[in-house]
């Protein structure tokens, strides 16, 4: 019986012998049609490839975010008029509203990453999920704090327990809970799965936040940009708002790429430390045995 060549070892032999095709092996996945179909996912599933992409993209994203934020802030302070009811306080909206949108958007990203962890087992999905939680918490905090600073002169109170504000506060608590969950579990695989399940359960809060102003009678005003019939605010205010929203989204993307890059390096560092410990162990063992027998 001669030795099998590599192709004989794979599914081709089984198909010839049994008449049915077996699932592709890793070798087959990485060559031919399947590879072509999955190539974008496979390419960036590799952390080294992702690091290369991140290193190239981060400076451009950061520069674009800074340029748009500068333009948005200039328009917010110098070209947008004061509101006829809110007066100058309307300028708080140019940071409050993008932060509110981002607080929901980041959760959407985390929910997708949770699906990636549980369903597709994408190697970077759990890193994306873990690193998005503190960023989402920061945007939610900005939203709540600036909203409170707007509410005091406009509503006469820092806080009311209405549906929109309360559900946004619940979102902040979910973000903080998810960030804490990653810290409390030692085994990263278990933490990723637990965080993914909690993220998907918490996703029920997103439509509640969005539609709370329609479902309940709230002090918070209803949507004025993303609504049926189009935006109902003046273009002089809408443009700076949209520019600030794009700048905030680019800032999130930049920071998320940077944080995922950090997470990859942290895992690499942990693996290297374990390798070093494994290499040191056999060298230490004979010395310990010798010491014990001498005693």
């Amino acid at each position: 019986m001669g030795t099998l060549n590599p192709i004989e070892k794979s599914g081709a032999r089984d198909k010839r012998e049994t008449g049915r095709r077996l699932p592709p092996t890793t070798r087959e996945l990485h060559s031919g049609c399947l590879r072509h179909k999955l190539s974008p996912m496979l390419k960036y599933a590799n952390p080294t490839q992702f690091l290369r992409l991140a290193n190239g993209v981060i400076p451009w994203l950061a520069a674009l975010a800074a340029a748009l934020a500068a333009a948005g802030l200039y328009m917010a302070f110098f070209t947008a008029p004061a509101d006829y009811q809110q007066g100058e306080s309307v300028r708080i909206m140019f940071i409050h509203v993008p932060a509110a949108w981002l607080s929901l958007f980041v959760y959407g990203v985390m929910a997708l990453a949770a699906l990636g962890t549980l369903v597709w087992r994408h190697p970077l999905a759990d890193a994306a999920q873990k690193t998005a939680a503190p960023l989402g918490a920061a945007f939610t905090f900005i939203c709540l704090a600036t909203g409170s600073l707007w509410g005091k002169p406009m509503w006469g109170t820092w806080w009311v327990w209405d549906a929109r504000l309360t559900s946004e506060l619940v979102l902040l608590l979910i973000y903080l809970g998810l960030a804490a969950l990653w810290q409390t579990m030692e085994e990263p695989g278990k933490a990723a799965r637990a965080a993914a399940i909690l993220t998907l359960v918490g996703a029920v809060n997103i439509p509640i936040i969005k539609f709370s102003v329609d479902w309940w009678n709230t002090l918070h005003q209803p949507a004025s940009v993303f609504r049926m019939g189009g935006p109902k605010i003046d273009p002089a205010m809408l443009w700076p708002l949209l520019i600030m929203a794009v700048a905030a989204s680019l800032l999130f993307l930049t920071l998320h790429f940077m944080a995922i890059r950090n997470e990859i390096l942290r895992r690499r560092l942990r693996r290297l430390a374990m390798l070093a410990a494994q290499e040191d162990a056999p060298a230490r063992r004979p010395a310990e045995t010798g010491a014990r027998s001498a005693a």
């Binding site: 007066g87 100058e88 708080i92 409050h96 002169p153």
Partner: peptide, 15 residues
Amino acid sequence: SADNAGYILAAYVIA
């Protein structure tokens, strides 16, 4: 107004 300027400034400083 002076009061609102303080709120606006505080909001931007926090952000």
